[in-house]
Amino acid sequence: MSTLAANAPGAPGGGLADVAASEATLRRFLHGLPGVDQVGLEARAATLGTRSIKTTAKAFAIDLAISMIDLTTLEGADTVGKVRSLCAKGLNPDPTDRTAPQVAAICVYPDMVETAKTALRGSDIQVASVATAFPSGRAGMPVKLADTAEAVAAGADEIDMVIDRGAFLSGRYLEVFEEIRAVKEACRRPDGSSAHLKVIFETGELQTYDNVRRASWLAMIAGADFIKTSTGKVAVNATPPVTLLMLEAVRDFRAATGTQVGVKPAGGIRTTKDAMKYLVMVNETLGDDWLSPHWFRFGASSLLNDLLMQRQKLRTGRYSGPDYVTVD
């Protein structure tokens, strides 16, 4: 591929392929990104969280949020039965109301992909699988790639990989870059199509907003289809400022390269109010282009129940309770 073609907008790597030519160029690029105004970012995220969304707009937001959920179970205690019942819930979230939309995807560990795939046969719901030694990412490359390949072979439509935070924090950016590239390669199926790749940064471990911005660009240049905040396994998960920062990064990346990348906040989003704050942020930062399950997802499990309870409240006028939704 000529340099010209590799740098063209819309090319893989988003026209920034030269950036990753060497460790030095990559570092120069990432450290050359403008610094994050922490106070401004947090104030902006807080302001966007104060919007009042009521009545029909609220009903729209609730249905949109449900359709954006990656319904997740990532426990050591997961069983085939639990994954099946989660799939059933994803297909038909509110048994008392068939108009409730389906979720976007079911997110499981690689060994559960086949179970989920079978349970969801014939539906539009995707099966997402975490991979690459989730959640710590502490394993050798062959293990990570085998983990990914196994999930893809089992039929996963989407792969949620974790980056090596240790390498990133010690400044070995090219290593992280190559890792994402290799996993992206492992997402390829024999028929030439490819599983969607979501790259998890674990922002709670990246220490600074500047690092989150760098990680976002790094992953997007390496070819991520989605960038995702967290695993949900550490103390600090998705927060509004971090998500806003990532939304700004995908906006700037599209402006620079023409490639659109999705965003998935995950972990700690439990209430309808939280979800609506995120949707407001998406709308204000990115606009309609991203307001679809194709470009924005929530990684959540308990959020769905709260959305359903709010939905029942709008429909019946009475406050609902946990007795009227399933126990997960």
Binding site: Q312, G317, R318, Y319, S320, G321, P322, D323, Y324
Partner: peptide, 9 residues
Amino acid sequence: PTLASHQDV
């Protein structure tokens, strides 16, 4: 009335 109609009371 809120208490009376609330499904979790």
